[in-house]
Protein backbone atom coordinates (compact mmCIF):
# COMPACT_ATOMS: atom_id res chain seq x y z
CA UNK A 1 0.00 0.00 0.00
CA UNK A 2 2.89 2.30 0.69
CA UNK A 3 3.56 2.76 -2.98
CA UNK A 4 0.26 4.43 -3.65
CA UNK A 5 0.01 6.82 -0.73
CA UNK A 6 1.65 9.69 -2.53
CA UNK A 7 -1.10 12.13 -3.41
CA UNK A 8 -4.66 12.25 -2.30
CA UNK A 9 -5.13 15.93 -2.12
CA UNK A 10 -8.42 17.42 -3.07
CA UNK A 11 -10.96 19.87 -1.83
CA UNK A 12 -12.91 16.96 -0.44
CA UNK A 13 -11.47 13.54 0.09
CA UNK A 14 -14.92 12.07 0.43
CA UNK A 15 -15.44 12.09 -3.33
CA UNK A 16 -12.75 9.45 -3.73
CA UNK A 17 -14.68 7.06 -1.53
CA UNK A 18 -18.23 7.93 -2.40
CA UNK A 19 -17.67 7.54 -6.11
CA UNK A 20 -16.94 3.82 -5.92
CA UNK A 21 -19.32 1.09 -4.93
CA UNK A 22 -16.62 -0.84 -3.12
CA UNK A 23 -15.79 1.97 -0.74
CA UNK A 24 -19.31 3.12 -0.09
CA UNK A 25 -21.74 2.12 2.64
CA UNK A 26 -25.42 1.55 2.08
CA UNK A 27 -27.36 4.78 2.65
CA UNK A 28 -28.83 3.45 5.90
CA UNK A 29 -25.40 2.76 7.36
CA UNK A 30 -24.07 6.03 6.07
CA UNK A 31 -26.84 8.07 7.62
CA UNK A 32 -26.58 6.08 10.84
CA UNK A 33 -22.87 6.82 11.14
CA UNK A 34 -23.41 10.45 10.19
CA UNK A 35 -26.32 10.78 12.58
CA UNK A 36 -24.55 9.26 15.56
CA UNK A 37 -21.25 11.00 15.03
CA UNK A 38 -22.84 14.38 14.40
CA UNK A 39 -25.10 14.07 17.44
CA UNK A 40 -22.03 13.27 19.48
CA UNK A 41 -20.32 16.26 17.92
CA UNK A 42 -23.19 18.60 18.71
CA UNK A 43 -23.60 17.49 22.30
CA UNK A 44 -19.95 17.39 23.23
CA UNK A 45 -18.33 20.07 21.10
CA UNK A 46 -20.78 22.44 19.49
CA UNK A 47 -22.97 23.13 22.51
CA UNK A 48 -20.07 24.12 24.78
CA UNK A 49 -18.77 26.41 22.05
CA UNK A 50 -22.14 28.01 21.53
CA UNK A 51 -22.42 28.47 25.28
CA UNK A 52 -19.10 30.33 25.25
CA UNK A 53 -20.17 32.68 22.48
CA UNK A 54 -23.64 33.25 23.91
CA UNK A 55 -22.08 34.26 27.21
CA UNK A 56 -19.48 36.37 25.43
CA UNK A 57 -22.10 38.41 23.60
CA UNK A 58 -24.60 38.55 26.45
CA UNK A 59 -23.83 42.20 27.03
CA UNK A 60 -23.50 43.08 23.36
CA UNK A 61 -20.77 43.81 20.85
CA UNK A 62 -19.46 46.79 22.66
CA UNK A 63 -18.60 44.94 25.86
CA UNK A 64 -17.14 42.20 23.74
CA UNK A 65 -14.77 44.52 21.92
CA UNK A 66 -13.90 46.53 25.01
CA UNK A 67 -12.92 43.32 26.75
CA UNK A 68 -10.50 42.51 23.96
CA UNK A 69 -8.74 45.82 23.45
CA UNK A 70 -8.14 46.42 27.14
CA UNK A 71 -4.32 46.63 27.72
CA UNK A 72 -4.23 43.66 30.06
CA UNK A 73 -6.08 41.53 27.53
CA UNK A 74 -3.78 42.63 24.71
CA UNK A 75 -0.65 41.85 26.68
CA UNK A 76 -2.12 38.46 27.57
CA UNK A 77 -2.83 37.75 23.90
CA UNK A 78 0.73 38.76 22.98
CA UNK A 79 2.26 36.54 25.62
CA UNK A 80 0.07 33.60 24.62
CA UNK A 81 1.08 33.90 20.98
CA UNK A 82 4.74 34.33 21.92
CA UNK A 83 4.70 31.12 23.98
CA UNK A 84 3.07 29.23 21.11
CA UNK A 85 5.42 30.68 18.49
CA UNK A 86 8.44 29.48 20.43
CA UNK A 87 7.20 26.10 21.60
CA UNK A 88 5.41 24.81 18.50
CA UNK A 89 8.45 24.90 16.13
CA UNK A 90 10.70 23.32 18.75
CA UNK A 91 8.28 20.49 19.32
CA UNK A 92 7.80 20.17 15.57
CA UNK A 93 11.50 19.55 15.00
CA UNK A 94 11.56 17.12 17.86
CA UNK A 95 8.44 15.34 16.61
CA UNK A 96 9.86 14.79 13.13
CA UNK A 97 13.19 13.53 14.49
CA UNK A 98 11.55 11.19 16.97
CA UNK A 99 9.13 9.82 14.41
CA UNK A 100 11.93 9.24 11.90
CA UNK A 101 14.03 7.34 14.43
CA UNK A 102 11.12 5.32 15.75
CA UNK A 103 9.19 4.56 12.58
CA UNK A 104 12.03 3.92 10.18
CA UNK A 105 14.36 1.88 12.38
CA UNK A 106 14.26 -1.11 14.67
CA UNK A 107 15.92 -0.83 18.04
CA UNK A 108 15.51 -2.15 21.54
CA UNK A 109 13.39 -0.23 23.97
CA UNK A 110 11.32 1.39 21.27
CA UNK A 111 7.99 0.93 23.09
CA UNK A 112 9.62 2.27 26.22
CA UNK A 113 10.74 5.36 24.36
CA UNK A 114 7.29 5.92 22.84
CA UNK A 115 5.73 5.64 26.27
CA UNK A 116 8.22 8.15 27.68
CA UNK A 117 7.18 10.54 24.94
CA UNK A 118 3.52 10.06 25.96
CA UNK A 119 4.28 10.80 29.56
CA UNK A 120 3.73 14.58 29.60
CA UNK A 121 0.07 13.97 28.72
CA UNK A 122 -0.59 11.97 31.83
CA UNK A 123 1.26 14.36 34.11
CA UNK A 124 -1.30 16.51 35.84
CA UNK A 125 -0.82 20.10 34.62
CA UNK A 126 -0.22 21.26 38.16
CA UNK A 127 2.67 18.85 38.51
CA UNK A 128 3.97 19.91 35.12
CA UNK A 129 4.23 23.42 36.54
CA UNK A 130 5.54 22.25 39.88
CA UNK A 131 8.52 20.43 38.35
CA UNK A 132 9.86 23.72 37.08
CA UNK A 133 9.31 25.29 40.48
CA UNK A 134 11.28 22.42 42.01
CA UNK A 135 14.08 23.04 39.52
CA UNK A 136 14.21 26.80 39.19
CA UNK A 137 12.35 28.07 42.26
CA UNK A 138 14.22 29.94 44.99
CA UNK A 139 14.27 26.73 47.02
CA UNK A 140 14.87 24.53 43.98
CA UNK A 141 17.99 22.87 42.60
CA UNK A 142 19.25 25.85 40.64
CA UNK A 143 17.48 28.48 42.73
CA UNK A 144 20.41 30.07 44.49
CA UNK A 145 22.61 30.04 41.38
CA UNK A 146 19.87 31.73 39.37
CA UNK A 147 19.23 34.40 41.96
CA UNK A 148 22.97 35.07 42.34
CA UNK A 149 23.20 35.69 38.63
CA UNK A 150 19.90 37.55 38.60
CA UNK A 151 18.37 35.24 36.02
CA UNK A 152 14.63 34.83 36.19
CA UNK A 153 13.10 31.66 34.80
CA UNK A 154 9.88 31.01 36.66
CA UNK A 155 7.41 33.83 37.24
CA UNK A 156 8.74 35.23 33.95
CA UNK A 157 8.46 34.47 30.25
CA UNK A 158 11.05 31.61 30.11
CA UNK A 159 9.13 29.64 32.73
CA UNK A 160 5.88 30.04 30.81
CA UNK A 161 7.60 28.84 27.62
CA UNK A 162 9.13 25.85 29.43
CA UNK A 163 5.78 24.81 30.90
CA UNK A 164 4.15 25.16 27.47
CA UNK A 165 6.93 23.12 25.86
CA UNK A 166 6.38 20.40 28.43
CA UNK A 167 2.62 20.05 28.05
CA UNK A 168 2.71 20.19 24.24
CA UNK A 169 5.78 17.98 23.98
CA UNK A 170 4.21 14.77 22.57
CA UNK A 171 1.73 16.16 20.06
CA UNK A 172 3.67 16.21 16.78
CA UNK A 173 5.66 13.08 17.57
CA UNK A 174 2.61 11.05 18.52
CA UNK A 175 0.74 12.18 15.46
CA UNK A 176 3.57 11.17 13.13
CA UNK A 177 4.72 7.89 14.65
CA UNK A 178 1.66 5.75 13.81
CA UNK A 179 1.36 7.38 10.40
CA UNK A 180 4.98 6.79 9.45
CA UNK A 181 4.82 3.28 10.83
CA UNK A 182 1.78 2.56 8.68
CA UNK A 183 3.63 3.81 5.62
CA UNK A 184 6.68 1.64 6.05
CA UNK A 185 10.03 2.58 4.58
CA UNK A 186 10.18 1.14 1.05
CA UNK A 187 9.81 4.51 -0.64
CA UNK A 188 12.62 6.09 1.33
CA UNK A 189 14.83 3.07 0.78
CA UNK A 190 14.22 3.22 -2.93
CA UNK A 191 15.14 6.89 -2.95
CA UNK A 192 18.35 6.25 -1.05
CA UNK A 193 19.28 3.34 -3.28
CA UNK A 194 18.73 5.63 -6.27
CA UNK A 195 21.26 8.03 -4.77
CA UNK A 196 19.22 10.59 -2.87
CA UNK A 197 20.82 12.10 0.18
CA UNK A 198 19.19 11.77 3.59
CA UNK A 199 17.61 15.17 3.74
CA UNK A 200 16.51 15.05 0.11
CA UNK A 201 14.82 11.73 0.83
CA UNK A 202 13.00 13.24 3.74
CA UNK A 203 12.03 16.42 1.90
CA UNK A 204 10.85 14.89 -1.37
CA UNK A 205 9.68 11.45 -0.33
CA UNK A 206 8.66 11.41 3.32
CA UNK A 207 7.31 14.90 3.79
CA UNK A 208 4.66 14.73 1.05
CA UNK A 209 3.43 11.50 2.63
CA UNK A 210 3.17 12.76 6.16
CA UNK A 211 2.06 16.31 5.59
CA UNK A 212 -1.50 15.82 6.82
CA UNK A 213 -0.38 14.10 9.97
CA UNK A 214 2.24 16.79 10.45
CA UNK A 215 -0.35 19.47 10.03
CA UNK A 216 -2.76 17.88 12.50
CA UNK A 217 0.10 17.56 14.93
CA UNK A 218 1.00 21.22 14.59
CA UNK A 219 -2.63 22.30 14.88
CA UNK A 220 -3.17 20.27 18.04
CA UNK A 221 0.15 21.38 19.48
CA UNK A 222 -0.65 25.01 18.75
CA UNK A 223 -4.16 24.80 20.15
CA UNK A 224 -2.93 23.23 23.35
CA UNK A 225 -0.04 25.68 23.64
CA UNK A 226 -2.46 28.57 23.54
CA UNK A 227 -5.06 26.99 25.79
CA UNK A 228 -2.85 25.60 28.54
CA UNK A 229 -3.91 26.75 31.95
CA UNK A 230 -2.84 24.54 34.85
CA UNK A 231 0.90 24.27 34.28
CA UNK A 232 1.32 27.87 33.21
CA UNK A 233 -0.71 29.02 36.19
CA UNK A 234 1.84 27.54 38.58
CA UNK A 235 4.89 29.20 36.99
CA UNK A 236 3.34 32.47 35.86
CA UNK A 237 3.25 34.56 39.03
CA UNK A 238 -0.03 36.07 37.73
CA UNK A 239 1.37 39.57 37.36
CA UNK A 240 -1.26 41.60 35.57
CA UNK A 241 -0.17 42.87 32.19
CA UNK A 242 3.16 41.05 32.41
CA UNK A 243 3.00 37.32 33.01
CA UNK A 244 -0.67 36.56 32.48
CA UNK A 245 -1.47 34.44 29.46
CA UNK A 246 -4.90 34.55 27.87
CA UNK A 247 -6.25 31.51 29.75
CA UNK A 248 -5.08 33.06 33.02
CA UNK A 249 -6.67 36.34 32.04
CA UNK A 250 -9.93 34.49 31.45
CA UNK A 251 -9.83 33.09 34.96
CA UNK A 252 -9.17 36.52 36.42
CA UNK A 253 -12.12 38.05 34.62
CA UNK A 254 -14.36 35.19 35.61
CA UNK A 255 -13.36 35.60 39.23
CA UNK A 256 -14.19 39.28 38.97
CA UNK A 257 -17.74 38.35 37.99
CA UNK A 258 -17.06 39.83 34.56
CA UNK A 259 -18.59 36.79 32.93
CA UNK A 260 -19.15 38.39 29.54
CA UNK A 261 -15.57 39.66 29.32
CA UNK A 262 -14.22 36.30 30.50
CA UNK A 263 -16.07 34.44 27.80
CA UNK A 264 -15.09 37.07 25.26
CA UNK A 265 -11.43 36.38 26.01
CA UNK A 266 -12.14 32.66 25.87
CA UNK A 267 -13.80 33.04 22.50
CA UNK A 268 -10.58 34.59 21.18
CA UNK A 269 -8.85 31.31 21.96
CA UNK A 270 -11.56 29.43 20.11
CA UNK A 271 -11.17 31.81 17.18
CA UNK A 272 -7.39 31.37 17.19
CA UNK A 273 -7.96 27.64 16.91
CA UNK A 274 -10.34 28.19 14.02
CA UNK A 275 -7.76 30.40 12.30
CA UNK A 276 -5.23 27.57 12.29
CA UNK A 277 -7.88 25.44 10.61
CA UNK A 278 -8.50 28.09 7.99
CA UNK A 279 -4.78 28.11 7.30
CA UNK A 280 -4.86 24.35 6.97
CA UNK A 281 -7.69 24.54 4.45
CA UNK A 282 -5.86 27.22 2.50
CA UNK A 283 -2.68 25.14 2.33
CA UNK A 284 -4.75 22.14 1.29
CA UNK A 285 -6.39 24.06 -1.54
CA UNK A 286 -3.13 25.52 -2.74
CA UNK A 287 -1.46 22.14 -2.72
CA UNK A 288 -4.37 20.67 -4.62
CA UNK A 289 -4.17 23.48 -7.13
CA UNK A 290 -0.45 23.16 -7.81
CA UNK A 291 -0.79 19.42 -7.97
CA UNK A 292 -3.55 19.67 -10.55
CA UNK A 293 -1.46 22.05 -12.63
CA UNK A 294 1.62 19.88 -12.62
CA UNK A 295 0.02 16.49 -12.94
CA UNK A 296 -3.38 16.61 -14.56
CA UNK A 297 -3.95 12.99 -15.41
CA UNK A 298 -3.18 11.76 -11.88
CA UNK A 299 -5.66 14.04 -10.18
CA UNK A 300 -8.30 11.89 -8.57
Amino acid sequence: MAGATTFHIGIDHAHRFESKAATRETPVVKWLILGISLTFFVVFLLMPLIAVFVEAFRKGWETYLTALVEPDALSAIKLTILAAVISVPLNLVFGVCAAWAIAKFEFRGKQFLITLIDLPFSVSPVIAGLVFVLLFGAQGWFGSWLSDNDIRIIFAVPGIVLATLFVTFPFVARELIPLMQAQGREEEEAAVVLGARGFQTFWYVTLPNIKWGLMYGVILCNARAMGEFGAVSVVSGHIRGQTNTLPLHVEILYNEYQFAAAFAAASVLAVLALVTLVIKTWVENRAAQSHKDSNRDDAS
Partner: peptide, 20 residues
Protein backbone atom coordinates in the same frame (compact mmCIF):
# COMPACT_ATOMS: atom_id res chain seq x y z
CA UNK B 1 1.90 49.07 41.61
CA UNK B 2 1.62 45.74 39.84
CA UNK B 3 -0.94 43.21 40.98
CA UNK B 4 -0.83 39.46 41.18
CA UNK B 5 -3.82 37.47 42.36
CA UNK B 6 -4.58 33.80 42.81
CA UNK B 7 -5.38 31.14 45.39
CA UNK B 8 -3.83 32.44 48.60
CA UNK B 9 -1.62 29.48 49.49
CA UNK B 10 -0.42 29.18 45.92
CA UNK B 11 0.49 32.86 45.89
CA UNK B 12 2.42 32.56 49.14
CA UNK B 13 4.21 29.52 47.75
CA UNK B 14 5.19 31.50 44.66
CA UNK B 15 6.81 34.13 46.85
CA UNK B 16 8.83 31.52 48.74
CA UNK B 17 9.94 30.22 45.35
CA UNK B 18 11.17 33.56 44.12
CA UNK B 19 8.21 35.62 42.92
CA UNK B 20 9.52 39.09 43.76
Amino acid sequence: VNQSHGGSSKQAMSITEGLE
